[in-house]
Design a protein around this nucleic acid. Sequence first.
DNA 1: ATGGTTGCAAGGCAA
Length: 171
Amino acid sequence: MKIATFNVNGVNGRLPVLLQWLAEARPDIVCLQELKAPQEKFPAPALRQAGYGAIWHGQKSWNGVAILARGADPIVTTRGLAGDPDDTHSRYIEAAVNGILVASIYLPNGNPAPGPKFDYKLRWFDRLISRAAELLALDRPVVLAGDYNVMPTDLDVYAPERWRYDALFRP
DNA sequence: ATGGTTGCAAGGCAA
């Protein structure tokens, strides 16, 4: 079982690359982020032709997440995260695929910090943790894959010293 | 304290 995640930054603009990568890597399950496409403009037919069933949570211009499965149709369980009725961003989708519960997640970038976007990111983390606790309680295989917008090592950023936690809040 | 650049979509925003 090969599970992959791919921030496509525009699923239609990146479609030729996505299809080529699917053909070469042949992942069984794929989590996509940054579709940048409304629900009705997701390229489901092209993906179907490439052998992948899909479910997606679209949004005009920004965000958007999807789950693909090779030779299978993911059964959607949840679109969006509970805990904030005013959240309009499409950043979470969850489905059952071949006995595994898979979520494609796209955490908020959070910049600039401090500020409302960073506050939103922290609240989003809390909501994700709440959902993760529910999924763990099911005692079934669960994968939470996607773009966490977290920088685990200095190699992940151009100038690490600018992103130390205390540096973000220096006046 | 990213800037340069890209995608969406039709000017500016998000990253």
